[in-house]
């Protein structure tokens, strides 16, 4: 092993893993609920970019990070509502609406960035700060990597068991799963399919917006167009990898986050492998994992299918 593989590098890699996993995990946890309810939200990438941009602008102007995160949540909710209106109420094609939303959010944030900042890229001082947890942060190697992170990182990982419980231990979770599997049966049982789907997509939008806000305010402290770099789509893959189970989704996101962190770490160690191959690692890991563990994946039966009461074939 290279002498460069020292504790500081391992600690940096673990910290990168956690930090890189967080925005994907936030978006994926919300998307797990969305897909369980029978909606496929390809607009998640755009919601992340919109969340990143809006949070950054508000936090910069008000000099208040909390307002930035709240704005991202509101913007995520608004875009979720728009997606819901188009796909649930108007029954438009979910894939087309999702991609349209992503293109719209990308273009609009890029345009507004130009209008507001011109060719300047202001940095939000104070953003990206970490909160050290006493005692545990002193554990060698692991301490600083795991327990000296941004507040939203802790919150995100705390949400995993809560969202798992919400999915499998609550009436809301049961209704979400019922609506995604057989909406007509849920409807017959008195569950409002549209209302449940609206709630799911609002949750998904909120989480995606927060995921984007973490990129701009928690990780980078600035905004650049294309800040998300496909993390929204990765979140969708991670949801499928985790079979819509929040605990497994978390494992999938961590796996991808670690693979991404490794691409940098392996290169720094000077390992004699072509960078081209190292950079393939995250995607190879996902493909291999899908092949090994997701062969029996059963999509929610009504995924991507609009529901209309009494419609033939449902």
């Amino acid at each position: 092993m290279s002498p460069l593989f020292e504790s500081a590098l391992i600690s940096a890699m673990l910290a990168s893993t956690i930090r890189g996993t967080t925005p994907i995990l936030l978006a994926a946890l919300g998307e797990a609920y969305v897909e369980r309810a029978g909606l496929l939200n390809l607009g998640i990438e755009g919601m992340m970019v919109a969340g990143a941009f809006s949070s950054f602008v508000v936090a910069l102007n008000l000099n208040n990070l909390l307002c930035g995160f709240l704005t991202a949540a509101v913007v995520g909710l608004a875009l979720g509502l728009l997606f819901g209106f188009l796909t649930i109420t108007l029954r438009a094609n979910q894939i087309v609406v999702g991609l349209g939303l992503t293109i719209f959010a990308h273009s609009m944030s890029s345009f507004l960035h130009r209008v507001i900042f011109g060719n300047q890229f202001p940095i939000l001082f104070g953003a990206g700060g970490t909160h050290e947890i006493p005692l545990v942060s002193q554990i060698p190697v692991l301490g600083q990597a795991l327990f000296n992170q941004h507040g939203l990182v802790y919150l995100t990982f705390l949400m995993v068991p809560l969202m798992h419980a919400g999915m499998y231990k609550t009436r809301f979770g049961l209704r979400i799963r019922a609506v995604g599997e057989s909406p007509w049966a849920a409807d017959a049982a008195g569950v409002s399919v549209d209302r449940i789907r609206y709630r799911a997509i609002l949750l998904g939008g909120l989480m995606a917006g927060l995921g984007g806000a973490f990129l701009a305010l928690g990780d980078l402290a600035f905004f650049v167009p294309d800040i998300s770099m496909g993390r929204g789509y990765i979140a969708i893959v991670v949801v499928m990898l985790g079979k819509w189970n929040p605990l497994k989704v978390c494992c999938g996101a961590l796996l991808f986050g670690m693979a991404m962190a490794l691409t940098s770490t392996l290169q720094v160690t000077g390992i004699k492998i072509s960078p081209d191959f190292i950079l393939m690692t995250p995607y190879l890991v996902v493909i291999v994992t899908l092949l090994l563990f997701a062969r029996s994946t059963n999509l929610p039966s009504s995924l991507c299918i609009p529901y209309e009461r009494g419609q033939k074939g449902q």
Partner: peptide, 27 residues
């Protein structure tokens, strides 16, 4: 000299750039 590549065409990947730079600083 340390040498890292962020991605195949990661010209706009600011987060990936930060990750790679942090790792180099760590060593």
């Amino acid at each position: 000299l340390l040498y890292s590549v962020i991605g195949e065409a990661a010209y706009a990947d600011a987060a990936g750039a930060k990750r790679n730079t942090n790792d180099q600083i760590a060593v």
